[in-house]
Amino acid sequence: MMDYSYLLVPFVAWFVTGVSKFLINCIRAKRFAFDLIGYGGMPSNHSAIVSSTTCLIGLKEGIEHPAFAVAITLSFIVLLDASSLRMKIAQQSVLLNQLVKHTDFEQIKPLRERIGHTKFEILMGVVFGCLVATAIFYYYF
């Protein structure tokens, strides 16, 4: 029988984190914040997805299994990307939007400035992902 837990856990982590992020954005903005759905914000969906998979592999296969090493490596790449590269893109978006404001290019749509994640947002994504994986693992296995 096929084991769907490796598909289920990251999906549930993505869903739980996404709903949590939406609720946090609504509370912070004091309105329904549908316009804030997307990249950036707290907690990090990408961090939750990769950490849930990594945690599940560690729980099911053990941390000595080669798949766990691959998952850790993938997780580090995603986490570093969320904190460094995407934050640099966000900084560039801010500067480009300021430049466009001072030109005659009114037809240019402003770039999204909220792209990357703070270290705390990433940490909370990892916590969400590991909690989801652990809860599903102990509930179903």
Rank of each mutant, 00 (worst) to 15 (best):
K21T: 08
K21M: 12
F22A: 03
I24F: 13
R31I: 00
F32V: 06
L36P: 07
G40V: 06
G40H: 10
G41C: 12
M42G: 05
M42S: 09
P43H: 11
P43F: 12
H46V: 01
C55Y: 08
C55D: 07
C55T: 15
L56N: 14
L56C: 07
L56Y: 12
L56P: 12
K60R: 15
E61N: 15
F68V: 07
S75F: 00
I77A: 02
V78L: 02
D81R: 00
A82G: 15
S83V: 13
S84K: 11
S84G: 13
M87P: 03
K88Q: 14
K88D: 02
Q92D: 15
S93F: 05
S93W: 07
V94H: 02
V94F: 01
L96A: 01
N97C: 09
N97D: 03
K101G: 02
I108S: 02
K109D: 06
K109W: 03
P110F: 06
E113K: 13
T118H: 07
T118N: 05
T118D: 05
T118G: 10
E121C: 01
V126Q: 05
V126H: 01
V127F: 13
F128A: 12
F128L: 04
G129A: 03
L131N: 02
I136M: 09
F137C: 00
Y138W: 08
